[in-house]
């Protein structure tokens, strides 16, 4: 893991290469480094970190979404990068609002992001611009809402029994 000073150096290099507005902040806690970038620049930052940086991170270990509910902007997308040569992890996160949840897709850079971006869309409603197959993945295709958002109720769906099936029109679809 890059230490706090190393993280700042990474942030500096990214700013110099991709643009001053690309890195929004840096977070270092529990010996884990996290780079926060502007949503529009995610793809460029990841492409730079993968190919051009002097300490490259060539492996995308995980991509997941998160909802920071009381805070704004609410939705977050995390990219866990890994350098297998140096055994270092670097988190990259970006945050978008519920009103405009658009993040560029990185499937062409990391094919592993395919299913994971679909899961983030399914669960949080983040739209990945340029994803080749932007469908739901875990929930049914006709499902409404994005269940992992914090304001989505647990158990908000009626359970079907014989006594209430007439109240649930067209439940069999």
């Amino acid at each position: 893991m890059p230490d706090a000073a190393g993280l700042e150096l990474v942030a500096q290099r990214v700013r110099a290469a991709v643009g001053g507005d690309s890195v929004v902040g840096t977070h270092h806690a529990h010996r884990q480094a996290m780079l926060e970038v502007a949503p529009a620049r995610v793809r460029e930052v990841l492409a730079y970190l993968r190919d051009e940086d002097e300490e490259p991170y060539e492996f995308l270990a995980s991509l997941h979404g998160v909802d920071y509910l009381p805070e704004e902007p609410r939705l977050g997308v995390h990219y866990q990068l890994l350098s297998r040569a140096r055994v270092e992890r670097l988190g990259v996160k970006t945050r978008v609002t519920v009103e405009e949840p658009v993040v560029p897709s990185v499937v062409d850079l990391f094919p592993t992001a395919d299913h994971q971006e679909r899961e983030v869309f399914d669960m949080f409603g983040v739209l990945f611009d340029g994803h080749p197959d932007p469908r739901r993945i875990l929930m049914p295709e006709d499902y409404e809402g994005h269940p992992q958002r914090r304001d989505f109720p647990v158990g908000g769906e009626p359970v079907l029994f014989t006594y209430n099936e007439h109240k649930l029109p067209r439940w069999y679809e």
């Binding site: 995980s62 909802d67 920071y68 592993t112 994971q116």
Partner: peptide, 11 residues
């Protein structure tokens, strides 16, 4: 507030 498991089978 959020738990995500990066499951190897999924990937």
């Amino acid at each position: 507030a959020r738990v995500h498991i990066r499951d190897p089978s999924f990937v």
